[in-house]
Amino acid sequence: MNTVSSFNPTTLPVNDNVNPYAFSVDLNGQWFTQKGKMIAYYGQIKFEALSAGFLDQLVATSFHSPLYAHDWVVAQGQGKLLLADRGFDVNSYDLDDGNLTVRAGNLLAFEPGLELKQSIIPGFLTLIGTGRFVAASNGPVHFVEPPIRVDPQALLGWADCPSPCHHYDHSYMRGALGMARHVFNIGGSSGEEHQFDFTGQGTVLMQSSEHVANEDTLLRDLEGQVNVLGVNGLQRLHSTIGQRLQAEKQQ
């Protein structure tokens, strides 16, 4: 007969994994947590929106991504905080005076000792400083060194090395077929035709799947960039979206 482990505040791990899919934060102060990633907690813990006035100093010091501010809260108090993300693998990572960029939808929580900024790559956030953060991945994470080209959907993040460049194979770009693919996004998700190209010194983090955990974060970036477009740009974007929707209906 199989036995089932039962946890309580004294037996839960301290800042470690409960299992591959859940992480236990030993909270004694404050952590930034993404909404919807807390599955349970023990103790006296409150969750405050970043707009709460008494958090102004903390937010001014540690959170510099207004585009994602609505997605985050501050967990404060004392107790055990359990984090998970829809059955994805969950792991913690320690930064020591470093910087790491991670897919925004995969970042679950981080200590206020780290400073969060918005990456120039849409859909990614950058953590700078010293401290711990928790992130989810669709399958185990692999750490590889540049130079390397990575499928965009398999890319989880990167540390130290410069931001990647887009790489499109010649067959993707060639002639009218390439233009049609660009407009209708036919084959656009294939890692064989489009990759992120990394060079320089650092580490690239890849998940073991081409399934992106949450595409809402990419939409948030795109919506944030719409504000800088003029009338001509908005009309062109409207036309491209209409063509893309029409192509989807025909599939």
Score class of each variant (00 low, 15 high):
8 N>V: 09
13 P>D: 07
18 V>K: 04
20 P>C: 00
24 S>W: 10
27 L>G: 03
28 N>Q: 13
30 Q>E: 15
31 W>F: 06
32 F>C: 08
33 T>C: 12
34 Q>S: 10
36 G>Q: 06
40 A>Q: 08
42 Y>D: 15
48 E>Q: 00
53 G>H: 00
58 L>E: 00
59 V>K: 01
61 T>P: 00
63 F>Y: 09
65 S>C: 15
67 L>T: 15
73 V>S: 03
79 G>H: 07
81 L>S: 01
82 L>Y: 00
84 A>D: 13
85 D>A: 04
86 R>C: 08
86 R>S: 14
90 V>F: 04
93 Y>F: 15
95 L>I: 11
95 L>T: 06
97 D>A: 14
99 N>F: 02
100 L>P: 00
106 N>M: 06
106 N>Q: 15
109 A>G: 08
111 E>K: 01
117 K>R: 13
118 Q>A: 11
120 I>F: 01
126 T>C: 12
126 T>E: 15
128 I>E: 11
129 G>M: 05
133 F>K: 04
135 A>L: 10
137 S>A: 15
137 S>P: 11
140 P>T: 07
140 P>I: 04
147 P>H: 04
148 I>G: 08
151 D>H: 14
152 P>V: 08
155 L>S: 06
155 L>F: 02
161 C>Q: 01
162 P>W: 10
162 P>F: 05
162 P>I: 10
163 S>R: 07
172 Y>K: 11
176 A>S: 02
178 G>C: 08
179 M>L: 14
179 M>K: 09
180 A>P: 00
184 F>C: 07
190 S>R: 09
190 S>G: 15
190 S>V: 10
192 E>M: 10
196 F>G: 00
198 F>K: 03
203 T>G: 06
207 Q>A: 12
208 S>A: 14
211 H>F: 10
212 V>Q: 10
214 N>S: 14
227 N>V: 13
227 N>I: 15
232 N>G: 10
233 G>Q: 09
233 G>W: 06
234 L>S: 02
234 L>N: 07
235 Q>L: 14
236 R>Q: 01
237 L>M: 13
238 H>I: 09
242 G>H: 00
245 L>F: 07
249 K>R: 12
